[in-house]
Design a binder for these strands. Structure first.
Lengths: 343, 343
DNA sequence: CTGAAAGCGCTTACAG
DNA sequence: CTGAAAGCGCTTACAG
């Protein structure tokens, strides 16, 4: 271990500036932080020298005294890795890009088997945004006792959260399918264990109900949390007595798999079966046909998550708020009028 | 500003443990860090109490004295946002997942207009991995003076780097196309300004040369760095006198756009034109037809990047190493034997 | 084997 | 308006 290597180049400190300007370190601190009244001459002089010397505060020292780390944590469950195909990556990026201008850095952490969050225990962060429903209530509650948190795409009584109008988005998507003339509308999801997916299912049910269409159990299928979930679910649908003329799928990735499976069965989308997804992921514009889906404003959600966290860091007594973001149906090529054949 | 809120619940410190055990704080420190010889009774007692109290060291204080932050930075140029469709996201995730078991956290930062890296100036990180060729040589060099760094998918004399065998991968892809009987093989890229893409182009050229095929300028097109790059490039190719029977595209995303454009022109892939991509992104298994491409082991690259950085943090005098990862051709459905019509 | 002291780089009452 | 002192929570020679 060579410990001295980078120590030769000692970073410049407040003391160096003080010596150079001929003033006390505490004065330098005040000048740089704009605290207390002081002659603008010395203040300017100090600032100028700091600039010249390329001074940056050592955040470890600063944080130790101010009890602020200058970073926030962004935590997701390991299950969402690879993020490449995750719903959450635009949210994470938005958090980073809005945190930076505010002088905050973001520590990106992944959670496995509900371990306690080292970044908060070690005081590396001033707050954390917990993304997804995999975060257990116990973890969230215990965290809340030591640090401000905001939940994204998850909800828990008494804690700040950023949510999506899953119900409304699903309702609208299914209503649209009904308007196109469809009556046999399937619902496919990876799993029902996810709050968001359950909400989307509820929206599906409500739309059917509103338009007087009876719920058909055989038109509902769960594919499981794995690659190929969509085709597994489609197989189940095809085993039923009634074939759907349209399928509402709870997320885009699964919708793409459903489309592939439909094609593999020798049918066409949307001529034989219309498919509508949810999320408006990048892939929605890559599949053939282009996917009709429900847009979720993930960038705005990430921005808002950070803003809210920042507010809570400033004042932890703020009362918990739940912000629900609206969704929007984006009509592309995977949906069309009710299939002729099955009419 | 309510500053006292979370301060009421003071985190437990080394002093608390010391008091409880009836020993000096310095002894607690030694026990917990396993330094110096000491009676195993007191050591055990201390460890047990620390455990009971749920003690975690305050990394701000620890870092201030040890000059180690316990975090590393992962930096990419803002241009690669959204990472969702980026080549780099699996690399970033791999860095995070290998850093965590080593007790390091990762600060994810985005670089805009070559600003200097605040995370290193503020001593928040012990090392940084710089991803992509957008990182300027000046920035890398200046950083290297204060902290260990490793470059990923980029190269610079005298600094550690993790690279991809772009040349070899491209060579193999084009050779494969030649083996299928193709002679009119196009090359499409977003841009030639990127080192990786230039290397892939070089591999393309070398394969043609090796098999005695003359380079045809009209078969080479750049689409520009924007959405739709692939179709723009394809249009250029179609303006030429000779139509390609196969196209080697420098990355998967652009390849997908090329496929779409070919379909839009009323042609089929691979019957009329074979398409081969590079990267083996998730989308390669989503497009129709499934994309033949060159696999890049991004996960392993990320793991290796962190390991190398860790080694450098331990000993900054290690001599710079360049690690080149091999690639592998993955044959799927977008490539086939030479088109009949144009033969 | 263990304690007391000094120090890491900063901030913040407290004097003057 | 500005300096000296104490303290944030830890580690590390230095004594004993």
């Amino acid at each position: 271990m060579i410990d001295w290597y980078y120590d030769l180049i000692m970073a410049i400190t407040i003391k160096d500036i003080a010596k150079r300007v001929g003033v006390a370190p505490s004065t330098v601190s005040r000048a740089l932080n704009g605290r207390g009244r002081m002659s603008s001459v010395t203040r300017e002089k100090i600032r100028q020298v700091a600039q010249e010397l390329g001074y940056y505060p050592n955040m470890l020292a600063k944080g130790l005294t101010t009890r602020k780390a200058g970073s926030v944590g962004v935590v997701i469950d390991r299950r969402h890795i690879p993020v490449e195909r995750s719903f959450y990556s635009p949210i994470i990026e938005a958090i980073e890009s809005t945190a930076t201008p505010h002088g905050y850095h973001v520590i990106f952490a992944t959670l496995k088997n509900h371990s306690s969050l080292k970044i908060v225990k070690e005081r590396k962060v001033d707050g954390v945004v917990l993304i997804g429903t995999d975060i257990s209530d116990e973890l969230a509650s215990s965290l809340l006792e030591e640090i401000p948190i905001v939940l994204v795409d998850n909800h828990l009584q008494g804690v700040d959260s950023i949510a999506v109008d899953n119900f409304g988005g699903a309702y609208r998507a299914v209503e649209y399918l009904i308007e196109l003339g469809h009556r046999k509308i399937g619902f496919v999801t990876e799993t029902m264990r996810d709050l968001s997916f359950r909400e989307r299912f509820a929206g599906y049910q409500e739309a059917l109900k509103k338009y007087g269409i009876k719920l058909d159990e055989q038109l509902i299928a769960e594919g499981g949390r794995r690659r190929g979930s969509g085709s597994i679910a489609l197989e189940k649908l095809f085993e039923g007595k009634t074939l759907p003329t349209a399928i509402f799928v709870a997320n885009d990735y699964t919708a793409v798999e459903v489309i592939w499976a439909i094609k593999a069965a020798g049918l066409n989308v949307p001529e034989d079966i219309s498919v509508v997804g949810f999320d408006d992921n990048d892939i929605a514009r890559i599949v053939d046909p282009l996917l009709t889906t429900v847009h979720v404003p993930r960038k705005r959600m990430g921005e808002e998550a950070f803003r809210r966290l920042l507010a809570l860091i400033g004042d932890p007594t703020l009362s918990p708020t739940k912000i629900v973001f609206p969704t929007e149906l984006v009509i592309r090529d995977s949906s069309g009028y009710k299939a002729r054949s099955t009419s």
